[in-house]
Nucleic acid binder design. Sequence first.
DNA 1: AGAATAGTGTCTCTCAGACATTATTTG
DNA 2: CAAATAATGTCTGAGAGACACTATTCT
Lengths: 216, 216
Amino acid sequence: MTDLSLNVHVVIFSLCDDALQVLLAPGEKDAWQLPGQDVQPAESLEAAAARAFAGQLGPGEAYLEQLYTYGDPGRVPGQRTVSVVYFVLIPPEAQRSSPSSTAGKMRWFRLNELPALDHDHSEIIAYALRRLHYKMEYSAAGFELLPDEFTLSELQHTYEIILGEKLDKRNFRRRILEAGIIEGTPRRRTGEGRPARLYRYRADAVAEVKTRRLFP
Amino acid sequence: MTDLSLNVHVVIFSLCDDALQVLLAPGEKDAWQLPGQDVQPAESLEAAAARAFAGQLGPGEAYLEQLYTYGDPGRVPGQRTVSVVYFVLIPPEAQRSSPSSTAGKMRWFRLNELPALDHDHSEIIAYALRRLHYKMEYSAAGFELLPDEFTLSELQHTYEIILGEKLDKRNFRRRILEAGIIEGTPRRRTGEGRPARLYRYRADAVAEVKTRRLFP
DNA sequence: AGAATAGTGTCTCTCAGACATTATTTG
DNA sequence: CAAATAATGTCTGAGAGACACTATTCT
């Protein structure tokens, strides 16, 4: 197809200030957009997506997964544009956005305070959020939003923020420990009140999804 | 990006002869490939995917969903090719492949008897199959592979073929009926043995996924 | 009558969910 | 010692899974 623009965009989620937030870049006029860029001829789609936010973030692993490809004619005025969109989760220590870049300053936005967005980017964020909810239910995605070591209260808090509901402390701890996907460390986190034990995610305990089927 | 080819492919599943099968088109030399074609300038990606198999199939609704976008440089020799791949489920009455087409004859293949395939199409089919398994667990996808009206034995059989395991008849019936997603019709299917009641899928009974979380 | 398939009920055991108190640290 | 947060165990009810016989039709 001629006159085709192929780019990638990333929906980057992280937890800051007890809320789920998205990283956005300045867009057209006063609007914002999902960080993104054109794909280079010799570069994989995933590498292009990773490049779209590398340099804006501090160290720390990012979880990156393809979300969806948007390509309807007319979704971007002027030129037929196909956007392969990726979904990214980053832990808090990587949130420090670097001071400047050619693309201008990126900023974190709470999900309920999103600014005006270019094209179909609102719709894309809404879809990414739905996907995050699903992932929380059947995978260990929640750990990608946490530091390497965390307390059980922090872990529970993460789940509560994303799922949007309160969870029972004793049931939460029982089930997460029985699942065997985290292990205790000798360290503790100290602060106000009794110090809490630190845990870490066991990547080896491949959390095989033992989902009960909807209809067997 | 210049010199870029954008196309769509479809992985079409259906049940024939008590087995899950895929529809393939003749490819390069003696190999086969997933049906597909270039995207037209004014056409949506989904419409292009639908067009890739329209005409090859008889009437009957097809379930169509975007699967994944493959675009690594080098996956297709010669030109950078980005393929948006769709996942399709069709019921048995739509299987009749029409006698001819410009692209040559398509054929159904059992999953364990796949021929040599072009490029990364084997990998794509393997991924589509994994996705089908997931979908069977948390959604009502199984019904897309059945005719409008079906017996409980046929439904159970469908699940057994795709999941690859035997299911208990009484438990299966109890749970599928309690879920309220199918309803009886006055008709029966007659054959050898006692005639079986025909059921139909209730599209209105939005099968909300009450998946039990892996970790709450 | 025999072969073939449809249709039906009970028990057990696991696990999700509700629930309140004690323990350890800091200021 | 008061305030703050961490840590811990039991009971109940719902539902998944194992299991075997009767009913209806066709030849």
